[in-house]
């Protein structure tokens, strides 16, 4: 079986679906210029405003992209395409892998645009900082990719829009992607337990690059295990031979 060719067609289809572009590419970019533009000399959450907001918008856009990658499974389930694929030699790992890969590919485009936008408003990290930001975002997106696969198997096409938009917005908001929720106290502690909080931090380079303390790795790790397990179970429930 030629997995590369299958993934090639998946990517082709991903970049032809313009609806998903709006959430992962257009909204974050527009919001960045509208909000960070006029406030480029202000400080927010201890960081220069554009630096803070570039991290926030990068988190929001890439999150939307990888969730959408998995959520597209719902569309294929609706037309019975999954059942059809079960009658081919395609393996489940290639099927799911292609969905995750296409989510990451869209996320990569989103990230490049947001980084370019950041540079245009004076965000000037070093090469090492760019690399560490990108690396941490790639890691931080893993639980969201699993979430996408879970949504794709459990949500019908009719409720997918609200489910995807709602979950993404809520996680972005609570994680501080649109602005800090709290800088100390109970709410701050709660938001720090969210994967989106650390995804936002991953994109905020200032004085030595993004800061991920050990707790960040634990939070991302736990969410990956929990959401990965849920996604796996949802997948098995969906395809189990009765």
């Amino acid at each position: 079986m030629n997995a590369t060719r299958y993934i090639h067609f998946e990517l082709l289809r991903t970049f032809r679906n313009r609806r998903f572009f709006v959430f992962s590419l257009v909204f974050p970019l527009v919001l960045f210029f509208v909000i960070a533009g006029p406030n480029r000399n202000v400080h927010l959450g201890g960081l220069p405003f554009p630096t803070y907001y570039m991290g926030g918008m990068a988190a929001w856009g890439t999150m939307a992209a990888v969730i959408a990658g998995g959520a597209r499974i719902a569309l294929e389930r609706q037309v019975g395409w999954n059942r059809q694929l079960r009658l081919t030699p395609l393996t489940p790992s290639t099927y799911l892998g292609a969905k995750v890969a296409s989510g990451y590919a869209l996320a990569a485009v989103s990230l490049m645009l947001i980084f370019a936008a950041g540079i245009s408003l004076g965000v000037r990290p070093s090469a090492v900082e760019w690399l560490s930001m990108t690396g941490l975002i790639i890691v931080g997106l893993v639980p969201f990719a699993a979430l996408g696969v879970y949504i794709g198997h459990r949500v019908s096409v009719d409720s997918m829009g609200p489910a995807m938009g709602g979950v993404t917005s809520l996680l972005a908001l609570a994680g501080g992607a649109w602005g800090p929720i709290a800088s100390h106290g109970f709410i701050h502690t709660v938001t720090q337990a969210l994967p989106s909080y650390w995804l936002v931090r991953a994109g905020q380079a200032y004085h030595g690059g993004p800061h991920w303390p050990p707790v960040a790795w634990v939070v991302i790790g736990v969410w990956t295990i929990v959401l990965g397990g849920l996604a796996m179970r949802a997948y098995q429930r969906d395809t189990s031979r009765v």
Binding site: N2, F9, Q84
Partner: peptide, 19 residues
């Protein structure tokens, strides 16, 4: 069963053949 979208007839047949 229907067909997946964002793909042409030729590409779809190609994609399935590649499996």
């Amino acid at each position: 069963g229907g067909l997946i979208r964002e793909i042409t007839v030729g590409e779809l047949v190609d994609m399935v053949a590649s499996l």
